[in-house]
Amino acid sequence: MVNAAIDWEPGAKVKWITTILSKGCLTMAESPDVTSPRVLNALLQEYGLQPRRRFGQNFLIDGNIAQKIVGAAEIKKNEAVIEVGPGAGALTIRLARAGVPVLVLEIDRGLLLLINNLLQHWPHVKVSEGDALRVDWRKLIDGFAPDRTIKLISNLPYNISGPFMYSLFECGFPFAGAVLMFQKEVAGRLVAKPGDRDYGSLSLLCAYYTEARILFGVSKNVFWPRPKIDSAILRLTPRRRILEPEEEPILWKLVKTVFRQRRKTMLNGISTLFPGRRRDFVVEILLAAGIDPGIRPEELDAGEFALLTRIIYNNRSKLS
């Protein structure tokens, strides 16, 4: 399954995996190395599984990279971790070793069974079936002890990266930090600055809610199946919010409106928010925020959008 060039004895390997699982993985030393192609192959065969394109599954098969990702999260004793999309457990087993509470979300029921069996003797790790795009993050976080801050870690399925990040920002990024893997192109969009070719609504919202930094690249050669492009690891740290909670829906409406028409000027872009109002009124709104009405949205940073949001909020009775 994993690589036709790998030479192994299927019967012996599956028998060894089954024996290990039946005893329970009590320590890191006793647990199967799921980043080993041979072990991964045997596990998937044992459970009748194979990578599912529908869920964007690419299994990490490099233990050094897995340890580097977990290390980048800098998990402290008073923290807990949510992992999304554990795959065969390359990160999960290492997170379990950290000794802090871990909640694992997996949508694939086959992998859910595999992970449950791998982790059955680590009582501080809970495995749950769930769709990361439909999670109530705040409710999930409320399930942990109130004295713990929560970090998020994931080798994200490539096909949900954008919607997943929007969902985190929509709930205000309620985490102490996150270490996430993205396709290199998506990582570039998240950290893009005003004026960059890749700068857009996702970049702006990422900069508003977090400080994002690319930590290191990850070759496509350390996954199976091998994706077409390389990946990158991002660390996201929450920022102090500029706007009040009641103002932020205006920010979202503003950002979505102007970036749907990104080649239009800000004057033309936000005029649709004030139907029936004279253009000179919209010009006054922009000038009050120190924004040239002729500038385009991709030239403005998160702070400038936040100031404009506050001014629009103060004129909200005139909004559409």
Rank of each mutant, 00 (worst) to 15 (best):
residue 159 N to S: 10
residue 163 P to Y: 01
residue 152 L to P: 01
residue 253 K to Y: 03
residue 263 R to C: 06
residue 71 G to R: 09
residue 56 G to L: 03
residue 192 A to F: 11
residue 61 I to V: 11
residue 1 M to G: 06
residue 2 V to M: 05
residue 28 M to R: 14
residue 46 E to D: 14
residue 183 Q to W: 09
residue 52 R to Q: 12
residue 236 L to T: 08
residue 19 T to N: 10
residue 281 F to E: 07
residue 107 I to K: 13
residue 318 K to Y: 04
residue 51 P to L: 04
residue 12 A to Y: 13
residue 213 R to C: 13
residue 137 W to P: 02
residue 122 W to Y: 07
residue 255 V to T: 03
residue 37 P to S: 08
residue 185 E to Q: 05
residue 120 Q to I: 13
residue 106 E to F: 13
residue 56 G to T: 03
residue 161 S to H: 00
residue 78 N to M: 12
residue 81 V to F: 08
residue 128 S to Y: 06
residue 313 Y to C: 07
residue 138 R to T: 11
residue 105 L to E: 00
residue 71 G to I: 02
residue 98 A to D: 08
residue 315 N to L: 12
residue 194 P to S: 07
residue 63 G to N: 14
residue 279 R to F: 01
residue 194 P to K: 03
residue 144 F to C: 11
residue 193 K to N: 06
residue 5 A to P: 00
residue 70 V to H: 03
residue 43 L to Y: 03
residue 2 V to Q: 14
residue 165 M to Q: 01
residue 158 Y to M: 04
residue 125 V to A: 01
residue 291 I to E: 04
residue 102 V to Q: 00
residue 313 Y to R: 06
residue 200 G to E: 09
residue 30 E to Y: 13
residue 119 L to M: 11
residue 51 P to I: 02
residue 94 R to K: 15
residue 214 I to E: 12
residue 84 V to H: 00
residue 296 R to F: 03
residue 254 L to Q: 06
residue 290 G to R: 15
residue 110 G to V: 15
residue 112 L to Y: 13
residue 139 K to F: 07
residue 94 R to C: 07
residue 79 E to G: 09
residue 247 E to F: 07
residue 176 A to F: 12
residue 221 N to M: 13
residue 301 D to I: 05
residue 302 A to Q: 09
residue 217 G to R: 14
residue 235 R to Q: 15
residue 177 G to Q: 02
residue 303 G to E: 14
residue 130 G to I: 01
residue 157 P to F: 07
residue 227 P to C: 14
residue 16 W to C: 04
residue 128 S to W: 09
residue 70 V to S: 03
residue 117 N to C: 08
residue 94 R to N: 08
residue 198 D to N: 13
residue 239 R to S: 05
residue 211 E to H: 13
residue 164 F to Q: 00
residue 237 T to E: 04
residue 121 H to F: 11
residue 242 I to M: 10
residue 43 L to P: 02
residue 75 I to L: 11
residue 229 I to H: 01
residue 63 G to F: 10
residue 134 R to I: 06
residue 221 N to K: 13
residue 231 S to E: 06
residue 40 L to E: 09
residue 102 V to T: 01
residue 107 I to H: 06
residue 77 K to E: 12
residue 9 E to G: 15
residue 264 K to M: 03
residue 130 G to H: 03
residue 157 P to E: 08
residue 107 I to W: 08
residue 283 V to I: 13
residue 219 S to D: 10
residue 256 K to D: 12
residue 199 Y to S: 00
residue 83 E to I: 01
residue 57 Q to D: 13
residue 11 G to R: 12
residue 312 I to M: 15
residue 124 H to L: 10
residue 237 T to F: 01
residue 45 Q to C: 09
residue 273 L to G: 12
residue 269 G to W: 05
residue 267 L to T: 05
residue 216 F to H: 14
residue 74 E to Y: 04
residue 173 F to K: 00
residue 242 I to H: 03
residue 126 K to D: 15
residue 84 V to P: 00
residue 253 K to M: 10
residue 9 E to S: 12
residue 23 K to P: 06
residue 206 C to Q: 00
residue 247 E to L: 02
